[in-house]
Write a protein that binds this DNA or RNA. Structure first.
Lengths: 168, 168
DNA sequence: GCATAAGTTGCGACTTAGTTGCAATTAGAA
DNA sequence: TTCTAATTGCAACTAAGTCGCAACTTATGC
């Protein structure tokens, strides 16, 4: 999710600075990604962009996303594939964060910590790997769903039946 | 990748223990996943399984993978989508590890550390999230490719052109 | 401001990955 | 051995993303 309007210009500038053209389509798509409070997927992005310019095409959305990924201006997320195989996008934040996806209620929680920062430095230092993206996604139950699941399970019983009826 | 044959029985047993039937298809698929040194994707798994039993079906592969995921016996990976949108699978190891994917040579390096373990505890403790899976994937350049990329760049020059010709 | 060349887009057909409903088959309990 | 619910194969389907190419647009130089 966008940190602030400080980035509003930046992404567009960055695209220009790297020598890419600033088309109305790119402008629109970038603005939509920045203004979105949620993580957006390609289909949603297309739908929103078409409200501004109905002629905008699906291929353009994918091509723009590819460009922004390459420029490392946006990050691609899977969010644990909770809702199919689509990808989600967010403006790359100053500080990397973890995405916690609740497979019961679908909520996405973001979490950042020094330990995560340190882990990345450690990886780079110990493996010589030059990190461009680090994506940590966690699946499980958020605190409220964990509580709900436990009380439900203690009554009914675990094992196959619990598994079969579970939402994940 | 499989840690050892100690798991060979375990996965099958686990499936039975949870009350699921042990069909010849499941047996074959589980064995293939365990014996594989590489991370396998669904299509490869199907191909390998058909060498044993040519009648085995694609749907069965996906359904079996779903089952093993739900039982938390295998983990699903994206490996940074280096080669398309397919998923890869590995037997869940005793200790979670990070996957480092080199977007230049495609090599996958595994890395585990106390810091990663600690990060997970920290997430659980601070957010109340009940972790079922934690998937940390890192994209970038492995040590040898990083060296190669640097020497190439210093000669030619960075910016758009370098970006355009790069493999990521 | 105007021409122009390279970058970008729209289109539409295509590929790849995964899903689904249903009839036929089979594992395993009785 | 019988029987039933779980599992499979099949085939048609959906969803997500890609690609080649002609048409259009941006940014540059004049």
């Amino acid at each position: 999710m966008p940190t602030e309007c400080s980035q509003r210009r930046l992404l567009l500038d960055e695209v220009v600075a790297k020598g890419f053209r600033l088309t109305s389509q790119r402008r629109a798509l970038i603005q939509i990604i920045q203004q979105s409070r949620q993580h957006v997927d390609a289909a949603t992005l297309l739908k929103l962009a078409r409200k501004r310019d109905p002629r905008i095409n699906r291929a353009t959305v994918y091509r723009t996303l590819d460009l922004l990924k390459k420029l490392q201006l946006v990050d691609e997320l899977d969010l644990m594939h909770l809702t199919g195989e689509k990808h989600y996008y967010e403006v790359r934040p100053d500080r990397q964060h973890v995405h916690l996806a609740c497979c019961r209620c679908g909520r996405i929680v973001e979490f950042s910590s020094d330990t995560f920062d340190r882990l990345q430095s450690e990886i780079a230092a110990q493996t010589g790997f030059e990190i461009q993206v680090a994506r940590l996604e966690v699946g499980g139950h958020c605190s409220s769903c964990a509580a709900a699941a436990h009380s439900a399970t203690s009554a009914s019983e675990a094992g196959k039946d619990a598994l079969k009826s579970s939402v994940d």
